[in-house]
């Protein structure tokens, strides 16, 4: 697991994806790739189509045009649960936890796909079913330790503060041992400390498990710090795609997205 951070070939390729809702064009002819073991950031102003892009990747939205190749296989129209079965997990911009269940149960649902015991064994809770349950519990406990949420294992998630809910949602996604992890604004609405924790977790996941991560984030500081590459979207179009430094230097990006700070730096330099 230590050679995990060797960035490899493309894990997922997005080619000429277009998606519209009625008259609204959310994505127009987007192409980029996500490489094995990298952290890719998708940035762009509000309504740029970032969340829609993730929704297309995990089969929640079906684009009108274009194709997606995951692990060398070009996929036809697929449902989210099929994407999950292929190793794609994600979190949501507006937390999508199971509010009526405890933290532990939420994380355990993340392992549903790994559980094999037939229904009747579970109803009887006999030998193998019990053993399976306990093995997965042990796995979830490792994630709980990793994300430092031991104290809230038995708390119903509805009662947790926002920052912790985001963390539990990450835990649930990690429980599935995904190859590709999609994070939609994992740090939105957090204070600085919580953001730092979250950055550390994201990097640790990437480092220790070799998980490929695509994340959406607005905080440019965070993006520049943790990502290997950045894709910039604006009004459904792709503006740029490259390392953080390349993107920062890209004129189209500066004009459209970083415009303000560019002018500020320019005027600051002038003074």
């Amino acid at each position: 697991m230590h050679a995990a951070r060797q960035i490899g070939g493309p894990l997922l390729q997005v080619e000429n994806i277009s998606l519209s809702f009625g008259g609204v064009r959310a994505l127009a002819n987007i192409s980029f790739e996500i490489r094995e073991h990298e952290v890719l950031a998708i940035i762009g102003p509000n309504g740029a189509g970032k969340s829609s892009m993730l929704n297309v990747i995990n089969g929640f939205y079906h684009p009108q045009e274009g194709r997606i190749t995951y692990k060398g296989k070009t996929r036809a129209r697929m449902r989210p649960h099929q994407a999950a079965a292929q190793g794609i997990a994600r979190t949501f911009q507006n937390i999508a936890l199971f509010k009526g269940m405890s933290t532990l149960d939420n994380i355990m649902t993340g392992r549903l796909l790994k559980m094999r015991q037939p229904f009747f064994m579970q109803a009887l809770y006999l030998g193998p079913a019990k053993r399976e349950e306990l093995e997965h519990r042990a796995f979830c406990e490792r994630i709980i330790d990793f994300l430092e949420i031991q104290a809230i294992r038995k708390t119903p998630v509805g009662r947790l503060p926002y920052g912790l809910q985001k963390r539990v949602e990450l835990a649930r996604a990690l429980a599935a041992e995904p190859e590709l992890l999609l994070l939609d604004e994992p740090m939105a609405g957090m204070n600085v400390e919580e953001k730092e924790d979250m950055c550390r977790f994201v990097l640790d996941v990437n480092e220790h498990f070799g998980t490929t991560i695509a994340l959406i984030e607005h905080d440019m500081g965070v993006v520049m710090d943790i990502s290997d590459r950045v894709v910039v979207l604006d009004y459904g179009r792709k503006l740029a795609d490259g390392t953080p430094d390349e993107v920062r230097a890209d004129q189209a990006v500066i004009d459209a997205y970083l415009g303000v700070s560019h002018e500020e730096t320019a005027s600051a330099a002038a003074e």
Partner: peptide, 28 residues
């Protein structure tokens, strides 16, 4: 036993948020 195992959790997941349940891999 059912409600504390996989089956029960998949039911509760559907109850609490069916979209998220599907994204985790539960077939509705």
């Amino acid at each position: 036993n059912m409600v504390r195992c996989r089956v029960g959790r998949s039911w509760m997941a559907i109850r609490d948020m069916d979209i998220a349940a599907e994204i985790i891999g539960i077939r509705p």
